[in-house]
Structure formats: structure tokens, C-alpha cells
Design a protein around this nucleic acid. Sequence first.
DNA 1: TATATACGGAACTTTACGGTTTCGGATAGC
DNA 2: GCTATCCGAAACCGTAAAGTTCCGTATATA
Lengths: 208, 208
Amino acid sequence: MTQLDVSEAPAPKLGRKRDHSRDPEILDAALEVLAEEGYDGMTIDMVAARAKAGKATLYRRWASKGELVVDAVACMKKNDLDPARLPDTGTLRGDLIAMIKPRSIEDAEKKMQVMAGLMSVLTRSPELAEAISQAIVQPRAEVNRILFRRAIERGEIPSDCDIDALSMVSPSMAAYRTMVLQKPVDREFLLDLIDGVILPAVGIRPPY
Amino acid sequence: MTQLDVSEAPAPKLGRKRDHSRDPEILDAALEVLAEEGYDGMTIDMVAARAKAGKATLYRRWASKGELVVDAVACMKKNDLDPARLPDTGTLRGDLIAMIKPRSIEDAEKKMQVMAGLMSVLTRSPELAEAISQAIVQPRAEVNRILFRRAIERGEIPSDCDIDALSMVSPSMAAYRTMVLQKPVDREFLLDLIDGVILPAVGIRPPY
DNA sequence: TATATACGGAACTTTACGGTTTCGGATAGC
DNA sequence: GCTATCCGAAACCGTAAAGTTCCGTATATA
């Protein structure tokens, strides 16, 4: 490459531009199929059919099934909550319970199903593993870390709490329950988890 | 079926008997491939090659790939420890730490990898889900339940502990760490888990 | 309104794998 | 040693899915 890359806007004089306006529908369709069928069960035809698009359209935009999936996973990140706008009720228990909302339960369920469908591919696709980590794993852990840190700053829980371990409790147990036990991660389960494991672990006991 | 099933020993007069002497090698090979490649990545040829067996031999014994995998998963159960012969050190912490042995760490790692490879298929194969549950999930939870129950009987921890939730903490976090975070479930991690989450959650604090 | 472009749909190619069959050689019982 | 039976290897078949090509149509820009 002795030549500079000057592939900028090669003057399309006429006709329709190749915008990526259909990307969202396609990526959403891919996520749905992925959640239902898993990586190997998902076919390009299924995705195209669900997005009411042609298979060729998908291949004009993504070079392979793998790249489409990585993109789809990455786009899950936009749904998750802003760490700057977390509930702040004044108590750790209040914050944790305030996180339990039908909307976020639903969103988490979908993400878990997608992750389950990608599990077997993770080890052989570092790209995909990274996408999953960025879109799901890290944000979830970060949210918990923030809540625990605030509780420490308030003096509500001891400052020598193992935050790294504690922030993984909820994601781990929710994932295990969905993927392995195949039981619902509902409000009841989450309340039991908070009052039966997490709060006891940081020394908070009833009465609350 | 008005006729009784009298398919017992139809008098093989001559030649070699069809014993199942090669089953263990084949099932072990299947487990290895399963752990490395996942369900969809595993091919019958791979298993046959690794077991130095012919593909036909596998199909003489199992009707399909699915049945072979179910059998292979089920045969993992024989490796796991007898609930009647668990460590009994007199303290919960002693018991939990006594469970950390290179042998069991290694065994657990293999099981987690197999489970990861089957994750996406679980929802569509109740047979397989049941096999996994019997071979891995239930035994692991049961071991923990026993240790917690004994601690309650000793009066070491409160009797109103949420044993159902607590017995899932270790399996959940180990699974998450292996499958999702792709980090090793080593002695250090398990010690941090015990001292940073489990023991605090049941009210046991240093000095031990 | 005219036209270049992208789109949906469908036909097509290639490859890989599940499953079957065949066959020469090994092996256990007679 | 003889023979029925099983085994491993390899060829073979059918199907399904990744990826490509083609075409008639819709659409945005001029």
C-alpha cells in the first residue's frame, strides 16, 4: 500500500444511496432468532425472512454470518441503562429492589437467552466473546459495583467488602437460573436473592 | 403388545458376542469432543477418530448423535463424589475448603465446558436437559445443601438461612466464571468466594 | 418524469455432516 | 484350525445451510 486510501464518497450522482436504514430491523431479527435457536440453529434465511429482507441484502451489508452476529450482539448495548442514572434511594436494599422492573427483567431475560445460544461458540470466537462482554457482562457488573460503592460511602456496609465478588453474585445466579435451571428470573427470585444472599453477605439483616 | 417380551439371550451359538466393551472409550471421546467443540461442532467422525473406532460401530450402539450425547453426559455422573462421604471437619469453612481439591477442580472444569457446549441445545432437548441436571446440577447443589444443613444442626449458622439460594451460589458463580468470564475456577477464586460471599452471607466472619 | 441504484425473492453452487452400506481383517468360541 | 460374528475403514447418499448470482421492482434523486 504505497497509495493513500482515498475511498471517500466516490460521487454517486444519481439513484438511491446505500444507507443502512434497514440495519436495525435486521439486527433485531437476528437477535430474536439467536435467542430462539442459538448460533448454530440460526440460519441466514430465518433472519432474512423475519426482517422481511432478501438474503442478498444481508450479504451486501455483512460479509458472513459471524459478522452479522457480532454486530447484533454489540447493538444490544444500546438498550441497557445509563450508569449515571441509577436508582438512588438512600439504602442498598432500596436501590437493589428499585432495579427490579418488568422492563429490565424482560430485557435481561432476552440477553440471557442470546448468551445461552452463543455459549458454545464463545471459546472459539474472541470477537464474539468481546462483544458479549462489552454489551452484557461488563455493564451488569458495573451497575452492581456502583451500588455497592455508594453503600460503602454511606457507611451502610463495611468498606472491606469483596465488591468484585459481590457484584458478580446477581449476574451469576440470574444466568445460572435462566440458562442451566431454566427457571424464570422473576421478582420473587430476585427478592429472595437480595434478602437471602446479597444483603446477609454485606451484613445487612432484618428489620430493614 | 399382547405378546410378552422374550428377547432374552437368543442363543448365539458361535462367534464373538456383541459386548459393549468399547463404550467407555467412545463415551469419553464424545465428552472430550463435546467439551472442545460443543454439540453442533462435534461430529460423529471426530468422536470415532478419537476413540479409534469406526463410525459404523457408533451407529451400531447408538441410534443417533443425540442419543450418544445423552449417554455421554449421563456417564459423567459416575465421576462425582458420594454424598455419603463428604468432608466433615466440624466447621462449615473447614468443609467448604476441604472440597477444594485439584481433582475436583479439574473434574468441575471439564463438566462446565461440556455444559457450555450443550447450552444452546438444552431448551430444545428435554432429555439432554434432564441428563445434565442429573449428572451435574443436582449432585452439586445437593452437596452444598448437606454442608449447610450440617452447619445448621451444629448451631454454627442460623436455622432460617435460605439454603436453597445459598446452595446455588457456588455452582452459579463457578459456572459464570468458566462459561461467561472464561476465567479459571482455581483455588484462589474459590477461597475468595467462600470468605467473601458465602461465609459472610451466613453470618460467619473472621477470625475463623 | 427519467434513471441509476438498491432491494426482495428465488434459483443456484458448494460444502459439510448425519446416517448407511460395504468389505477385508481380526477375534472369540467351537 | 474353522467359522460365525464383530470391528475399523472408507466409500457412499441425502439433506441442509452458507454464500452467490440473477432478475424484476421499487425508490430516491435529478
